[in-house]
């Protein structure tokens, strides 16, 4: 049976402020979905809620992995179950080297039942794999010795997120604006990385404002978020339309959601 990540009528609030107002989205393993929408409409909030960020409070609805409600799981359990997110703004962890960070991460995700203190993946095996993946992404080997996201350029951070995805080989991956900040070559490499893990092995949600990443990873579905709701779903042609035409048609078609979006933007501006 195909594995599924199913989001049903999801309501999310941040600091008591409602952001998502009933999101429905089903991603099957092997599918590529694009998620577009104006700034502040709630795209990253959806990703964070799926990953289990404690600041994003789920006030209604459910998130199910293969039929099991995962809302009570913490981020550790979700990541070990194969859900991954490449963040729009990854966090720096000063003093912790990329290689060290990833060796631990990779071990934990590959052996979800690992208890703290148990063996890590053998160093040689890990190094070999890491070097290979970094080579594919044309990353300087020196990168492995740098501290996690500490002083990385915007593009380096995004490459590092792709590298992590490549090492962790998730079942479901949310790429939150991974393409912004990447130069044209890097977008190509990122796409190759996705293809290498096997686009057909992953359920992918690409959050983007561009169509560069989508060109190489043609979405099976495109969703539009407005004011904390998915208001429209279409195919790849919808992504192209939004990219070239903008959101005027969408706003006009969904005045309620557009108004909610306005209200959210104003509230956060205060």
């Amino acid at each position: 049976m195909v594995e599924t990540l199913k989001i049903t009528d999801l309501h999310v609030a941040v600091e008591g402020k409602p952001i998502l107002h009933g999101v429905n989205l089903t991603i099957n393993r092997g599918e590529t979905h694009a998620l577009m929408g104006p700034n502040g409409s709630g795209k990253s909030t959806l990703g964070n809620a799926v990953m289990g960020h404690p600041s994003y409070e789920v006030t209604g609805g459910s998130i199910e992995l293969n039929g099991e409600n995962i809302l009570a799981w913490d981020a550790t359990q979700r990541s070990r179950a194969g859900i991954f997110m490449a963040f729009q703004r990854p966090m720096a962890i000063p003093g912790v080297k990329m290689a060290e960070f990833l060796r631990h991460a990779t071990t934990n995700v590959r052996n979800p039942d690992r208890k703290e203190g148990e063996e890590l993946i053998p160093m040689r095996q890990f190094r070999k794999e890491l070097t290979e993946k970094m080579g594919q992404l044309r990353m300087d080997p020196e990168f492995a010795r740098r501290y996690v996201n500490d002083g990385f350029s915007g593009g380096e951070m995004k490459r590092a997120e792709i590298l992590q995805m490549a090492m962790l080989r998730p079942k479901f991956a949310i790429l939150d604006e991974t393409d912004s900040g990447l130069d044209v070559d890097a977008v190509k490499l990122a796409s190759e990385s996705i293809a290498e893990i096997g686009g057909d092995q992953m359920g992918i949600l690409i959050i983007t404002h561009h169509d560069k990443l989508l060109e190489r990873n043609a979405p099976d579905f495109t969703h539009v978020m407005l004011g904390g709701k998915l208001v429209e779903t279409g195919g790849v042609e919808l992504a192209h339309e939004l990219y070239t035409e903008g959101y005027d048609r969408i706003r006009a078609a969904y005045p309620e959601a557009a108004a909610a979006g306005e209200a959210m933007t104003e509230a956060s501006a205060v």
């Binding site: 550790t76 003093g95 995700v109 703290e116």
Partner: peptide
Amino acid sequence: FYAMTRGYTRKEAVRMIVSGFFQQ
């Protein structure tokens, strides 16, 4: 949270961040 989305338990994450703090 970031470390936990990479498979770290919360405690492992705290330990790692503390050791990173001392690395310098």
